[in-house]
């Protein structure tokens, strides 16, 4: 079986497994970002989340982010796994591992990856609260758009 560096899975993510994918003798750093399910958002208590994805396209877009990182940071190795399905508080939703020859690049590339995931990867989360549920509608996790259209001040140029 070939190792997939960019994956959407339904089972719990094993962090060590993702890290191993980017190990390299010329790496001086491996930066690992772990995104977890938060309980309180702006005073609202999340009971659990549900993630859904357009899996084949999401894996393609994760691979594209990996390529963008390779174009920006020399000799970087990238692996990203995102989990979908029902997740509970503190569960790991995403793991990004980046190895680079020098530490600064690994921090920057890891940050770059998570921000890009929130822009271009077709994955959606639905928050379930005590008093309701809603698909979260933007990449900054701050606002849902009940009308499906962001208000003008919410549109980011970048």
């Amino acid at each position: 079986m070939t190792v997939k560096n960019f994956e959407i899975i339904e089972k719990p993510i094993e962090v060590d497994h993702i890290i191993r994918k980017v190990e390299d003798r010329n790496a001086g750093a491996i930066n690992t970002f772990i995104g977890t399910v938060r309980e309180m958002t702006k005073g609202k208590k999340t009971l659990y989340l549900k993630y859904d994805a357009y899996i084949p396209m999401a894996e393609k877009k994760l691979a594209q982010i990996g390529k963008e990182i390779n174009d920006r940071y020399a000799d970087a190795k990238v692996a990203i796994t995102h989990r979908i399905g029902a997740l509970e508080i503190s569960d790991i939703a995403v793991v990004i591992a980046v190895s680079t020859p020098h530490r600064a690049d690994s921090f920057d590339a890891s940050r770059y990856a998570i921000e890009r995931i929130k822009e271009i990867v077709p994955i959606w989360k639905k928050e379930h609260w005590e008093d309701g549920e809603e698909w979260i509608g933007d990449q900054l996790e701050n606002n849902a758009y009940p009308l499906g259209v962001p208000k003008e001040e919410d549109v980011i140029d970048d």
Binding site: G35, Y51, A53, Y54, P56, M57, A58, K60, H82, A93, V94, I114, I117, K118, E119, I120, V121, P122, I123, W124, K125, W135, I136, G137, D138, Q139, E141, Y145, G148, P150
Partner: peptide
Amino acid sequence: NEEFADESVKVRQGDLIAFIPPVSGG
């Protein structure tokens, strides 16, 4: 076919079109 597309793109027989609301992964 799994790539973002403009409004003018012609969708042909056998193609797959997806509508993607604002994403919220991570």
